[in-house]
């Protein structure tokens, strides 16, 4: 039985906004699944449907074999949730939050052991209104862990966390997965997902544009490379697209960017341009997973700072 299964899931807001469009998604039991996409891609809406916060316009979704519309409470007994954009109760302490969750879920945990796991023990008896964003996020994660859930659904779990916090959270997710818990989490930052996930699904504009293991995505991205060539002046006719193996060309100011089917084509591009104009600089980059993600989601690679870059000339 899959942990999560949606079929032809569609959610419209009013007439104009199509938040999720015809989504078929299966998350298997026991895996760590990363749900990726830029803000507004439909990730949160999908998660909200899974939790019965939002009702689908059409299509169905099941969680742990239960229909989200008809058996929401059965589902909630067995899952842990870190919702996005939710604030904790500012007049309650972390310990009171956990006592409440433990009692409601009828779980055997003690507040202290959970607080210890999310590193909040020292602040356990302070009111949550005085917590930092990261502390609230850790408290939320702690509440999600209560009752040893079969499935963790985490919406943007690393938001508000500092690098150490993100590291700790990854560690927690790995521990949970090792103990047999299915983990489903969303993020708009690829590197987070890359580090822990077995499989990823990439959403863009309400649709699932890619669904694969991290390895396969890496293989798919390994083949291509891009090169930026800066020219003193751009002549009228460049005709870079006519070179064998060049997939895409853009010209911005004095920089010609070409996406090549493999690395050897880059040399052809430089030679081709050198015959027609004065080359002042060359910058070459292998396509990273990040760029692949950006290509799927239609975001420019210009803003991509983390791509590995090597300077040729």
């Amino acid at each position: 039985m899959p942990a999560i299964e949606t079929s032809a899931l569609t959610k419209r807001y009013g007439e104009d906004v199509l938040a999720v469009s015809d989504l078929d998604l299966t998350v298997e039991s026991g895996e760590i699944f990363g749900f990726l996409g830029p803000n507004g891609a439909g990730k949160s809406t999908t998660i909200n449907v899974l939790l019965d916060f939002v009702r689908p316009t059409s299509g169905t979704a099941t969680v742990l074999g239960h229909d989200t519309r008809d058996e929401a409470e059965r589902i909630r007994e067995r899952i842990g949730v870190l919702p996005e954009g939710a604030t904790v109760y500012e007049r309650l302490t972390a310990r009171e939050h956990l006592e409440w969750v433990i009692e409601t879920k009828d779980a055997a945990d003690t507040p202290d052991e959970i607080l210890e796991r999310v590193d909040l023990l020292e602040d356990a008896d302070r009111k949550a209104g005085g917590y930092s964003k990261g502390m609230c996020q850790r408290l939320g994660l702690g509440m999600a862990l209560v009752g040893d859930p079969d499935l963790l659904i985490l919406d943007e779990p690393s938001s508000g966390l500092d690098p150490t916090g993100i590291q700790d959270m990854r560690e927690l997710l790995r521990e949970e997965a090792a103990s047999g818990t299915t983990v489903f989490f969303s993020s708009h930052i690829l590197s987070e997902v890359e580090a822990v996930c077995d499989r990823v699904g990439i959403m863009n504009e309400g649709e699932l544009v890619a669904l694969d293991t991290i390895e396969s995505l890496r293989d798919a991205s390994a083949g291509t490379a891009t090169i930026d060539v800066e020219l003193a002046a751009v002549p009228d006719s460049l005709d870079v697209g006519s070179i064998d193996g060049v997939q895409q060309v853009t010209v911005e100011e004095n920089v010609v960017t070409a996406t090549c089917a493999d690395t050897s084509v880059k040399v052809d591009v430089v030679c081709h341009l050198d015959e027609r104009a004065t080359v002042t600089d060359v910058l070459s980059a292998d396509t990273s997973l990040e760029q692949l993600f950006n290509r799927y989601t239609g975001e420019s690679t210009e803003t991509d700072e983390s791509a590995s870059q090597e300077v040729i000339a």
């Binding site: 939790l51 916060f53 939710a86 409601t104 879920k105």
Partner: peptide, 12 residues
Amino acid sequence: SGSIKYQLSLPV
């Protein structure tokens, strides 16, 4: 405030 999402994530 969104805290109802914490509330409704529990079996309620």
